[in-house]
Design a protein around this nucleic acid. Structure first.
Length: 699
RNA sequence: GGGCGAAUAGCUCAGCGGUUAGAGCGCCUGCUUUACACGCAGGAAGUCACAGGUUCGAAUCCUGUUUCGCCCACCA
């Protein structure tokens, strides 16, 4: 439909050679500035801020699906006369990127602690220099029509300023605080994690019944101690009480007595607490406030001390007596053997239970008490909840609005500090000379309290998702009041996978409704996951089923891949992808190509592509009527975000009616100018409506 | 323990109140028909998971059941 830079005289191949076409076309598009968007009061804006992939990441099918959908929406609106901005960017991906570089260091026999913070961060930047930007070129190969002149990185100056400004304002309002709380700790990554970064899985385990001897000797009835039940025996070194239910007849009169921990012999009290279940285990519950979230709360109710038994690397500390230095899981085994030898192990029963794992390293997460920074999200949640409830932000498919509301209503404070080096460093300074904590957007010269120059910045960085939460406005210049922000914000659609509804979408709504007082986007479109033909999650480690989008582009063409990622799925629905599907889509691209080839060979050059004034042929009338109907259907389906339906309708009409009927009937020796014009008009119209989905082959 | 999704042709999915239930792939039968064999013409193939109910009419709405999958939750 547009004049391509190549010579139209060169013979067209019988088979559509996607790779030969794609690179040339993309370069032309980009160099011509077709994807640039600017503030334009004469047009209505259409904005999509791209979910930023990891800066050093590789394109996977999830990205490809995101790109296919967002590009289709963007190109459609651009064609409809909107000022369409699709703003790309990348994420520093704190924990993920840091771990990759740490693994590299490990290969060299080094570690981040060996080389120090400054050298390590330099090393990560080098890594970003080498691998950053790869994903951008991969998105280009898909045909993504984003405005590269606006690409943003979460660690750029703008977003960094947005991070510090947000931190400062929330802190000043008392909505960011530092506290000693029980949090999730990954001993592999050696950092705290938010609740969302912990994946729970049901696993086989055991319930160990362990006897804690009474301090002042056996009871008159002969009982020598209290038997507690636990799945994590090694945590007993951190116990500071044993709790029983106040109404439990088995333990009547024992509250207030003291028992001795096995091995170390530390004395702890027996307390009464209603939260203890009468029908679980032995009815006596060991209380470990330092290493169990429930026990932490019980401990607060009873003002129990907190004993930490773990070193940051997951080995037991001196609290474990002879077990000090042992890795926690090894210590469990050794301790059980010791308890058995000491005659304190009263039984072991199988007990499958849910175990939390670090999303990144897969290691078992340990609850520990430490000083961390938190966002008090409840006050923000009210606005975020209202935004969706009153329809200022709509979620597609709608059922996720309930999921969203349920999460918001039960939201808990968000741990945002990470003991990592790669990320936005927390803008907080501690003073050596007074207790004042200086929180500042700019690096301060001294303590804001006493003026002392002896201040040190908090060592930690922020959760990656903190900066992601500001993405819709930080990419447009906020906190500066820019024309871009005024014009393009709030964005029209936020399109992403349902798997990051809480991680990202909810956080964006939380942060922006509070900071800006306006929703970040009008519509959230959530796509599903890409799966194998038999419904399994596609993983790179399983090459028999994994499909690499880049290989697919090479083998089938970007258009075919894009079609395959949209066809046969809808919002919130998982998609099964397999080679035959890609083949089928490639055939459609080939069909479009060959229909065009036929028309170019048939009609004289210069045939107008406008609709003919008068259509006499009944066949042509039938075609144009169907065409009109199809275009209408496409627009209807699109406005309801039913992209698969669009392709179905287009393929059905293009192939089944236009090609199989009209083109076949049209083959005749004598052609009228009207015949030619109908052909030219119908084909170019079809190319236009197809273009958002298959940009290369329709160009 | 709560919540959600899926169940329609061999496979992947449309259809979501109205005549004989559709598509793509696969399968079968013909076709080197002057765009395309990544094609064309034709064909076989479905008690729409099950049981009730609402309705003149149900794959489609309601209730329950079963099977798969997912999410959330502090199950010592």
């Amino acid at each position: 439909m547009t004049t391509t830079p190549s010579s139209p005289r060169e013979p067209l191949s019988k088979v559509y050679e996607a790779p030969a076409v794609e690179e040339r076309l993309y370069r032309w598009w980009e160099e011509s500035g077709f994807f640039r968007a600017k503030v334009n009061p004469d047009r209505k804006p259409f904005t999509i801020i791209m979910p930023p992939p990891n800066v050093t990441g590789q394109l996977h099918l999830g990205h490809a699906m995101t790109a296919a959908i967002e590009d289709a929406l963007t190109r459609y609106h651009r064609m409809k006369g909107f000022e369409a901005l699709w703003l790309p960017g990348t994420d520093h991906a704190g924990i993920a990127t840091q771990m990759v570089v740490e693994r590299e260091l490990a290969k060299e026999g080094s570690s981040r602690h060996d080389i120090g913070r400054e050298a390590f961060i330099k090393r990560v930047w080098e890594w970003v220099g080498t691998y950053g930007g790869i994903i951008e070129d991969q998105l280009r190969r898909l045909g993504a029509s984003c405005d590269w002149s606006r690409k943003t990185f979460t660690l750029d100056e703008g977003p960094s300023l947005a991070v510090r400004t947000t931190f400062k304002r929330l802190y000043d309002k008392g909505l960011i605080y530092r506290g000693e709380r029980i949090t999730n700790w990954c001993v592999t990554c050696r950092t705290a994690l938010s609740d969302l970064e912990v994946d729970h899985a049901e696993e086989p385990g055991a319930l160990y019944k362990i006897c804690y001897a009474f301090e002042d000797g056996p009871l008159p009835d002969g009982r020598t101690g209290l038997v507690v039940a636990t799945t994590r025996p090694e945590t007993l070194f951190g116990d500071t009480a044993v709790a029983v239910h106040p109404d439990d007849p088995r333990y009547a009169g024992l509250v207030g007595k003291r028992v001795l921990l096995p091995v170390t012999g530390r004395s702890i009290p027996v307390i009464a607490d209603e939260a203890v279940a009468l029908d679980f285990g032995t009815g006596a519950l060991k209380i470990t406030p330092g290493h169990d979230p429930n026990d932490f709360e019980t401990g607060e109710r009873h003002h129990l001390p907190i004993v930490n038994i773990l070193n940051p690397d997951g080995t037991l500390n001196e609290q474990a007596g002879p077990f000090a230095g042992q890795e926690r899981l090894a210590a469990r085994v050794a301790l059980v053997a010791r308890l058995e030898a000491d005659g304190l192990l009263e039984g072991v029963t199988e007990h499958p239970h849910s175990v939390g794992h670090c999303q990144r390293s897969g290691d078992i997460v340990e609850p520990i008490v430490s000083a961390q920074w938190f966002v008090a999200v409840s006050p923000l949640a009210e606005r975020a909840l209202a935004a969706v409830r009153d329809g200022r932000t709509r979620i597609v498919p709608e059922r996720f609005e309930k999921v969203y509301a349920n999460w918001m209503e039960n939201i808990r404070d968000w741990c945002i500090s990470r003991q990592l080096w790669w990320g936005h460093r927390i803008p907080v300074w501690y003073c050596a000379d007074c207790d004042h904590v200086t929180v500042s957007i700019e690096d301060p010269a001294g303590c804001e309290g006493c003026g002392s120059a002896y201040i040190t910045q908090d060592e930690d960085v922020l959760d990656t998702w903190f900066s992601s939460g500001l993405w819709p406005h930080s990419t447009l210049g906020w906190p500066a009041q820019t024309a871009d922000l005024d014009y393009f914000y709030p964005s029209t659609v936020m399109e992403t996978g349902y798997d990051i509804l809480f991680f990202w979408v909810a956080r964006m709504i939380l942060m922006t409704t509070y900071m800006i007082g306006e929703v970040p986007f009008q519509t959230v479109y959530l796509h599903g996951l890409v799966r194998t033909r038999d419904g399994r999650k596609m993983s790179k480690s399983d090459p028999t089923t994994a499909i690499d989008p880049l290989e697919s582009i090479a083998d089938y063409g970007a258009d075919a891949l894009r079609l395959a990622l949209i066809l046969g799925t809808g919002p919130g629905q998982d998609l099964r992808l397999y080679p035959e599907k890609l083949e089928a889509c490639r055939r459609f691209a080939n069909k479009i190509w060959n229909a065009g080839r036929y028309i170019l060979m048939t009609i004289p050059p210069g045939t107008p592509i406008t609709p003919p004034q008068e259509v006499r042929s009944e066949l042509a009338q039938w075609l144009l009527h169907g065409l009109d109907q199809t275009v209408r259907n496409v627009q209807g389906s699109l406005s309801a975000y039913r992209l698969s339906e669009v392709i179905d309708a287009l393929r059905g009409f293009f192939w089944g009616e236009f090609c199989d009927w009209y083109l076949e009937m049209d083959k005749k020796p004598e052609r009228s100018p009207e015949d030619n014009q109908v052909l030219a008009y119908a084909y170019t119209t079809l190319l236009k409506v197809l273009h958002p989905y298959v940009p290369f082959v329709t160009e």
